[in-house]
Structures are given as C-alpha cells and as structure tokens.
Design a protein around this nucleic acid. Structure first.
Lengths: 146, 146
DNA sequence: TATTGTTATACTCTATAACTATA
DNA sequence: TATAGTTATAGAGTATAACAATA
C-alpha cells in the first residue's frame, strides 16, 4: 500500500486514508494523553458520557473495541474510579458500564475541551463541504463492510 | 467522538474517518494474517518490495512506524528470514533494511494477491471519483499535520 | 443451545527516554 | 553537537479459545 501508481488509483486512496487517519490519531492522542488516559480509555469515557450506561456488548460495538480488550479497559477505568459495572435487571449475564460521579466530572471537564481542541483543525467555516467529506468517507467505509 | 450532532459537523467527519479506516484495516488485516504476517510486518515487506532496500529511518517515515517499534518488527522479520540488515558504505551509524531472496519471493507472491483482494472492494469503474476521494482525504490529513 | 462476559496464553505494537556509536 | 538505531520500561491492544453463568 506504499507506492502510488497511476495504474491503481484505489491504492492511492487507501494510502491517503491511512495517512489521514494516522494524522488525526496522532493529533487527538497527543491531547488525550495529557489527561492521563489512553485513546481507548478516552473513547469509552466519551461514549458513556451523557448516557445511563450501556451493556459492554453495545459499548464494544460503538467503540470498535473487541470484547476481550474491553474487559481490560473497563478494569483499568474501574481502578481509576471512573467507571463501574452495574448488573441490569432482567439479564444477569451482562453488565452495564456506567460512569461514576468522578467519571462524569471528568467527562464534563475534558470532553468539551477535547472537542475544542479537535475543532482547531477546522477553522474555516466550510459547512456544506464537511457534509460532502462525511458522505465520501461513508461511501468508502461501505466498500469494506457492507 | 461518538455522538453526531448537527451542531458539530466536523465530529461526524472524524467519526466517519475512524470508521472508514477501521473497516479498511479489518478487511485488509484479515487477509494479511492468513499469510502469517502482522499488518505492520506486511507494511514493511510491501514497502521494501521492488527497492534496493532503504535506511530504517526512511522505512519508518514511509510506514508511519516509530523507530523504536521498527527495531522490533525488523528483528522478527529477520528471524523469519525475510529481511536482513545491511551496513551501507559511507555511514556506519545506519542500516539498510533489505529483503532477502525469501522476502522477495514472498513479496512477489503475496503483494499482487493482496492488491487484488483490496481491489475487490472497488469493483465499479469509478476512476475520476477515486481521484476526488483521494483529494478529499489529502485535505483532511492536511488539517492535522500541516 | 445460545449469549455475555471473563480468563488465559502468547504476541505485537506503542510511547518515551536514555544510551551507544558514528558523523 | 547531531544523527541512526538500540534498549529499557511500562502499558496497551490483538487473536484465539476455553470457560462460567445465565437465558
């Protein structure tokens, strides 16, 4: 996926996709780590924010983290006192992952700050253009998973 | 980066970027692992293919892998007999990473197959569209690193 | 039997920084 | 001093499969 050739335009697209994602990741992670969280941990906090909690299965779906890995991430967030497991009524096979008060406080404090940080990369007011970019990416994703 | 709000269209874009990349990664990695390589190892093999080898520093740049990690990856590829380190004339601080004959054979065998595999996601003949997608991604990347 | 999540194993990759050898 | 790469440390994510509890 390294050499861009005129013969394989789709390779150039994939390389750009990887590089765009990498650039975004590095940009975002630099900020997240200052908060003492890994990107995956931040993702979980951000996903649980403003919810009543959700089953680990649903959390795994939303964060794109596999269930085995998620167990470890939730463990570490529990150690930090940011998340707790709650047994939902009606199905004792599962747990809800829920933000603790400390987790909610952290979310309220750092999530908007992170959004602002990300937003700095989008200074110009290109509204309709963003919608077009979003559609383009949606289409690209669809090629690999539909 | 989970909830898409009309108020923050750029968040929707970033979420799509993450999901598009994730979908592509999963699609590609499923094939790569069948070859007994990790995605990072495949990336190195693919980058070294059809070259005379290159300094680890350059390889790190191209693959987006940091130099510390690259040391370990090259070590494992050396153990597999696919890559060797070569001391270039004129600068004994560095090494060239070079495919061994076995590495070249593997490259010749699996690289085109992988390209074909990836290509299956791009069945329609949308030539000019791909160029547009590439430009869109290039622009998105630029927001985070320029 | 199927589902949810945990555990175990064994690797692989990551970031960071200190370190060695060479330039 | 600066550069190329290695090493050390510590943590985090991956795949896979077996497992327990519940449905």
């Amino acid at each position: 996926m390294q050499e861009t050739t005129a013969k394989e335009p789709f390779l150039a697209v994939l390389r750009e996709l990887a590089q765009a994602y990498h650039a975004f990741s590095a940009y975002s992670a630099a900020h997240v780590r200052q908060l003492g969280l890994t990107p995956a941990q931040f993702d979980v906090i951000a996903t649980l924010g403003n919810t009543q909690g959700m089953p680990l299965s649903q959390l795994a779906q939303k964060t794109l983290i596999t269930k085995g890995t998620l167990t470890g991430i939730i463990d570490r967030l529990e150690e930090k006192g940011l998340v707790r497991r709650e047994v939902p009524v009606g199905d004792r096979r599962s747990f809800l992952a829920v933000l603790t008060p400390a987790g909610e406080a952290l979310f309220a404090q750092v999530f908007p700050a992170h959004i602002d940080y990300l937003k700095r990369a989008f200074t110009e007011g290109d509204e309709g253009e963003l919608e077009q970019v979003r559609r383009t990416l949606r289409g690209l994703r669809g090629r690999f998973q539909d």
